[in-house]
């Protein structure tokens, strides 16, 4: 009990633990723990440069305004494009990582990107297919019902209304945005 100086006794001795659990105590000495101490100057990273060469082609690459320069290496996976790209570029150019606006704009850009891509898919040769892309068919193949009946899973409580929460919040936000825009237009007239 914490009301007296003694630590509560353990159910097993070190000898019992060593006999029951493979490797018990192998890293008891902090010197055997590879991330102790956290900062070390004697590790060989494999780098054979003082400063890495600069990856070419980054002239228009978006970056955090907390960076002094474009980093020597950067990803080129999905360049900015469309309205979502404009939103994301504004988030990067205007707000530091310390501002909630930076991240909330990036999340807004993500949702715009999703809708842009869904719409574009309908004029492409491969429209989005919510059945195959959500993997929902695994409900049958992977025992959806019995998996949820097993034990006292607390996530079952919200799984039933998750789709409404995830999709519905954006519907509500859209309705509010449209209503606000109409009010603004009415007042300007």
């Amino acid at each position: 009990m914490p009301y007296t100086p003694e630590k509560p006794p353990l159910p097993e001795t070190p000898e019992q633990l060593r006999a029951r659990i493979p490797g018990w105590g192998a890293d008891l000495d902090p010197a055997d723990r590879p991330s102790v101490p956290r900062e070390r100057r004697d590790l060989d990273s494999g780098a054979h440069w003082h400063e890495p060469e600069q990856q070419p082609g980054g002239e228009d690459r978006e970056r955090s305004i907390e960076h002094a320069r474009l980093t020597p290496a950067f990803g080129t996976a999905q360049p900015l494009h469309g309205l979502s790209g404009a939103i994301r570029r504004y988030a990067y150019d205007r707000f530091s990582e310390g501002r909630a606006a930076h991240w909330l704009l990036l999340i807004a850009g993500d949702r715009v990107d999703a809708w842009e891509s869904h719409l574009a898919s309908f004029v492409s040769g491969r429209p989005d297919n919510p059945v195959t892309e959500t993997g929902v068919l695994s409900e049958r193949r992977r025992h959806g019902l019995s998996s949820r009946r097993d034990g006292k899973r607390v996530d079952v409580v919200h799984q039933s209304f998750d789709p409404v929460l995830v999709g519905g919040s954006w519907v509500v936000a859209g309705v509010v945005a449209v209503a606000a825009a109409r009010t603004l237009v009415r007042r300007l007239r």
Partner: peptide
Amino acid sequence: HNVNPNATA
């Protein structure tokens, strides 16, 4: 610090 232009954190 040399691989992620999008964030410093």
